[in-house]
């Protein structure tokens, strides 16, 4: 795909906006449709578009597979870590109310962190799966 100028230019222009949209979906998920699952998939799709247009080698330079694997685990650990943090603050597992000074703020903070963990893991799994499939084909 390296020789298609139109594809390259359009991809280059649109990838930043896809990332921006993914972040919007991630952090605006409390107020509108969206959340960690969708944001993770969109984030992964941006990487996949990059890998499709500019080749797998360039994509692996941006996101080396080891880093992606690290993020797969990091997202799940963040989710579980929020639960354990709630335990340490004296609440129940995954009971976010105790995380901040008042109950509703704690819930909001907990939901934000948990959704972030979901988004990280989903995005990393999508990227890793695509990279391994593409890598196998060479």
């Amino acid at each position: 795909m390296r020789h298609h100028v139109i594809l390259r230019v359009v991809a280059k222009l649109s990838i930043p906006f896809i990332f921006l949209f993914a972040l919007y979906v991630q952090f605006h998920g409390d107020f509108g449709p969206g959340g960690g699952f969708q944001a993770g998939v969109i984030f992964g799709a941006a990487f996949i578009l990059y890998a499709l247009i500019f080749g797998l080698d360039n994509a692996l330079k941006v996101a080396p597979i080891n880093v992606v694997i690290f993020f797969i685990a990091a997202g799940l650990l963040l989710f579980a870590g929020v639960g354990v943090a709630a335990l340490l603050y004296g609440g129940k597992f995954l009971d976010y109310g105790v995380l901040a000074s008042d109950f509703v703020a704690g819930q909001h903070l907990g939901i934000l962190l948990v959704e972030l963990g979901v988004g990280i893991t989903v995005a990393a799994v999508m990227i890793a799966v695509f990279f391994t499939f593409a890598d196998r084909g060479r």
């Binding site: 699952f37 993770g40 998939v41 989903v122 799994v125 799966v129 391994t132 499939f133």
Partner: peptide, 15 residues
Amino acid sequence: TAIVVGVATTALGLS
């Protein structure tokens, strides 16, 4: 959640 889990398991099956 089931949709995203579904695509992850589909990827496993395809591999």
